[in-house]
Design a protein around this nucleic acid. Structure first.
Lengths: 216, 216
DNA sequence: ATAGCAGTTCTTGTATACAATAAGGTTGAC
DNA sequence: GTCAACCTTATTGTATACAAGAACTGCTAT
């Protein structure tokens, strides 16, 4: 348990929202949650503010806080932004990446490859994350890195879903190879283009997935 | 006065930090601020959380909250990110902007021109802001627009300073013209490049400014 | 029957009281 | 004289109490 219960509660609430216990539009009841977590309303309210900053809930004055999941359109927009941010990271990283980091990057990519061969989606997800985080880091811009991590985290639950689409992991690996090559070649524009496409395709895949589910 | 005092206090604190009453590293005393604003600690603490989300203060657990102004390096990083985000907005806007919006954009630019001729820095600042916000909006991506506005707002106090550099407004106008031309020509890459440079130069100008002040 | 209004209840926002921890000062030992 | 341990104090984090506004219900009037 954390020293600060408000933080722990924020994390738990985040999990509860991601896990689907609370869905879009639900009002989060301060009293119920307080007794559920065995605390007073104060830390619950602090947790709400933390969540509202990450955009998971919206606070209406004197009305309460409501879960706010992005709809299809907003999700597509978010993926578009993520794609552009990663493209920027890639462009900068191509100029600034160190040899050591390049080696680590290739290692992470090899682990991805192994995970694909084993059909281990969890391992793939983990190593893929490491791969991308390394690129953020090697942009050499810590502020950019933080922003990228923030958005990456927010899109996490939606990225996971479309991993299970048939053939996605394999295609993703091919894209990774192109990205690594661009970075090895120190080709900023190529790195930007390949990374942008790599991420944008995820958003489009997700969009198709949602569209195909909607009429059902 | 706002219904919610916590929000009003957050705004006031923001102003106090920007105005220089509180400087980097200062601890914000809950009790003192509470009595100063004539409220209890509760709304002050809520305001702190709001500020910490915009990055103006940092909360150390069990230690208190401290004002956190970005240093020269971080500021340069932030301007680099802002430049890239505006470049993205420009690239998308070049494809998506409406004729009506283009007209409004040119109007805003004309107002900028007038302000330069009159040497009215305030008017220039205002119309320049309108100019940029319009581009964010015409990216056609509301999420991107919000992110751009967020960062734009955070950089506000630093952008204002370097407006008073000799010849900056004039140079800025020339850059605006190039940007408008790229949008009129529906040339995405040109729009991206001109916007990126337009913003990046601000960061560099600021960096030089700080460097020249440091030894003094 | 329905629309509007008043009273009640429930919820949020704020104040105060309490608990726990970290900082600072004082005292004592070496 | 200095270092360390303990105690005091001050400040944060949490709980509870109170106030103010919103939603809901039931009544009344048209």
């Amino acid at each position: 348990m954390d020293i600060r219960r408000a933080d722990a509660i924020a994390d738990e609430l985040e999990q509860l929202i991601f896990s689907g216990e609370f869905v879009d539009g639900d009002r989060l009841d301060e009293n119920k949650l307080a007794s559920r977590f065995g605390v007073s309303r104060t830390p619950v309210r602090e947790a709400f503010q933390k969540l509202s900053l990450s955009g998971l809930v919206k606070q209406l004055p004197r009305r309460g806080v409501f879960v706010r999941q992005p709809g299809p359109v907003e999700l597509l927009e978010m993926f578009e932004v993520m794609a552009e941010i990663e493209a920027v990271c890639g462009r900068l990283a191509a100029k600034r990446i160190s040899d050591a980091a390049l080696k680590t990057l290739q290692e992470a990519n090899d682990e991805c490859q192994k995970a694909v061969e084993n059909g281990d989606a969890d391992a793939y997800y983990r190593e893929n994350e490491r791969f991308h985080h390394l690129i953020y880091q090697q942009s050499g811009n810590q502020f950019l890195e933080q922003e990228a991590l923030r958005l990456h985290k927010r899109l996490k639950p939606f990225r996971r879903i479309q991993l299970h689409l048939r053939g996605r992991m394999k295609q993703s690996m091919a894209e990774h190879k192109a990205i690594v090559k661009a970075l090895v070649d120190a080709n900023p524009e190529e790195a930007a283009i390949t990374l942008r496409e790599h991420v944008a395709v995820q958003g489009e895949k997700f969009h198709h997935l949602m569209a195909s589910l909607k009429p059902a």
